[in-house]
Design a binder for these strands. Structure first.
Lengths: 154, 154
DNA sequence: TATTGTTATACTCTATAACTATA
DNA sequence: TATAGTTATAGAGTATAACAATA
């Protein structure tokens, strides 16, 4: 096993850490945290969602979603609505304020991305994204079982 | 501003999240958490360090280091030793058990990296690492001030 | 019986502020 | 006066377990 893979992985982790710090700082200006912003993002992308569905999308427990939605609801960024056909379930919905906050944040997100990537030559960036996508495809297919990952069947 | 930068940044975040989850799972098998493992890693790389120095390396508050060292000390993975020339300071030192745990974990880390990167053609990976390093260099020079990043002077 | 979301409880990471011991 | 580390306190994310309401 080439130990340089380890060095490469270290760099990926360093990038992740620095991006997280940068994002957290950006989000603070919008009164958000990383976890809450990600929930908002999902709602913006896929419309009203049940908490059950959110817990799957965010890969956390339903209990955790309760807390995040509590906070976002207290900030009037989301609303809990009754599910039309399943009275057990709750549909978490963006409020107008939530949608506005999400949009402002997303603009900041794209600007941050631009600062990071604009200085890199476009063709390098294409290769970078292709390799990134290659790796992600593996990881998504392996999902929880990274310890046994060895090729995506079919 | 090209909005595809945002898509790219999303992918980087997805990779970071999946790696973090994978690492956390791996670390759990060694009785470690991400934060504690990182502290151990620093000690392995740079020998005994003061808590002050650790707080700088880990980019967290000194108070935070106290808690991490408390936990690692309770697990007998590190030892607090008096600083030879400054009686205010503490040198955090790896125990034999700590060194052994660190090494086992690092082997797992490299194996994990291999599973991720081995399926990617070597030349793609070279470009990937070069671009990654390019981006990291920017970020390191900009450091906390990502909001004002615009080129590294000399 | 299974599922959705909650209350109860707990652990970890992180931070600020006030304090002690030393420089 | 400044620095290293601690105690005290607090907020956020996460998790499990037990429970309510509904399917």
């Amino acid at each position: 096993m080439d130990p340089r893979y380890g060095t490469l992985l270290e760099k990926v982790f360093e990038l992740a850490g620095r991006l997280n710090d940068g994002m957290a700082e950006e989000l603070e200006g919008h009164g958000l945290t990383t976890a809450r912003a990600e929930l908002l993002w999902r709602l913006g992308a896929d419309g009203p969602l049940t908490q059950r569905r959110l817990s799957e999308d965010l890969r956390c427990t339903p209990r955790n979603v309760t807390g995040l939605v509590d906070a976002l609801e207290a900030a009037a960024l989301v609303r809990r609505e009754v599910h039309p056909t399943d009275r057990r379930a709750i549909l978490v919905t963006l409020t107008d304020a939530g949608r506005a906050t999400l949009q402002r944040w997303q603009e900041g997100f794209v600007a941050l991305a631009g600062q990071m990537f604009a200085p890199v030559p476009a063709e390098d960036l294409q290769g970078f994204e292709a390799t990134l996508e290659h790796i992600l495809t593996q990881l998504r297919s392996a999902d929880g079982s990274m310890g046994a990952a060895s090729g995506q069947d079919a």
